[in-house]
Design a protein around this nucleic acid. Structure first.
Length: 301
RNA sequence: GGUACCAUGGCCAAGUGGUAAGGCAAAGGUCUGCAAAACCUUUAUUCCCCAGUUCAAAUCUGGGUGGUACCU
């Protein structure tokens, strides 16, 4: 079994901080589990750890993709498994820090995904069916192709139905889940209002640090709303502002609002995972608590 | 001061006589493949107030209050 520490939690609770502290203390290296921080050029809006912090502690899964590229849970699991092995081989402790729940869940539970490629042509056809005949027709297609798979898919969720059809039609081999990870999984928590307050002030900070310019640069490079990376919170809203759809004030409010909604969703997702909950309202106390737990867990075989 | 228009949930808003659409927010939730995505559930016994017409009014009439625009 591979020993891996996980630091999860909603946006703006302070995951990065605790990750770095623990890494320093336990000779660890960090793998980010964040669907936006993997992209180069998306720094401010993704609250990426600073270069300075990246020098203090080795970080992986940050800046590994161009903003034009696609990425999926499958890719994340592949990448991360390799890194975990590498880190352990070097005698260090892997620490996974991030807020993208599904990435982490897939890793912990050992999803064996087949690696089905995106099929743009098929996608276009399916989109067309959805627009012309509705989601029900789309779902019916899935039922016809693979009725077992269809049972697991939300009937009304076009994004998932399309992906399911894509997978069903590809040759990807699916095996059973298997995980060789012995995880110590922390879920950082804090009073909801406190989190919301942090989010609001962090958004203000991002704006002061030049979020709008960051997006402008990406737009200049040819990025637009159909790129996966640009659908992230903080980016799509600025895009709306730059295109004159929203005024500045509205943009700011929307970024805050969407971040709050996101935090809520993360909290819900985390509730369903087996985690060790840590109240981080008192930073020092929380750090001590986590350190003790890591120590004890690390000793165990 | 005059004239016109408007007043519907936290916000935006549809509805012009038949028993309150929708969107956003909020709250809760889903989750094995774009997840900072996508999706689901809940949320106005009541339409600014008062009086009237009518079997029936958010919808019509009169008055009041508040707002907006234009005029003097």
């Amino acid at each position: 079994m591979k020993k891996v520490v996980f630091i999860l939690g909603p946006t703006a609770v302070g995951k990065s901080y605790f990750g770095i502290c623990l890494a320093k203390k336990f000779n660890g290296e960090i793998i980010s589990a964040d669907s936006v921080q993997i992209y180069k050029g998306l720094n401010i809006g993704s609250a990426k750890v600073s270069e300075k912090e990246q020098k203090e502690v080795v970080h992986y899964a940050i800046d590994i993709l161009e903003p034009e590229e696609q990425f999926s849970v499958f890719d994340f699991v592949q990448y991360t498994k390799d890194k975990i092995n590498e880190i352990i081989k070097n005698g260090k402790l892997p620490i996974i820090v991030g807020g993208t729940g599904l990435y982490v869940k897939a890793l912990i539970e050992g999803y064996n995904l087949g690696g089905a490629e995106r099929n743009e042509q098929l996608r276009q056809e399916l989109e067309k069916i959805k627009d012309e005949q509705g989601v029900d027709a789309l779902y019916q297609m899935l039922v016809d192709i693979d009725s077992n798979l269809a049972l697991q898919i939300d009937k009304k969720n076009p994004v998932r139905i399309i992906r399911a059809i894509e997978i069903a039609k590809s040759q990807g081999v699916k095996e059973k889940n298997s995980s060789d990870i012995d995880g110590l999984i922390f879920a950082l928590e804090k009073d909801r209002n406190e989190i919301y307050k942090n989010i609001n002030s962090r958004v203000e900070e991002m704006l002061e640090n030049g979020l709008v310019d960051e997006v402008k640069a990406l737009v200049k490079r040819g990025l637009g709303r159909n790129h996966q990376s640009m659908r992230a919170i903080g980016y799509k809203e600025v895009l709306d502002y730059l295109e004159g759809i929203d005024n500045y004030q509205t943009m700011v409010e929307k970024i805050k609002q969407h971040s709050r909604n996101y935090a809520k969703r993360q909290l819900t997702f985390l509730k369903n995972m087996k985690t060790t909950r840590i109240d981080v309202s008192d930073k020092d106390k929380a750090l001590k608590e986590m350190s003790d737990l890591v120590e004890e867990w690390y000793e165990r075989t």
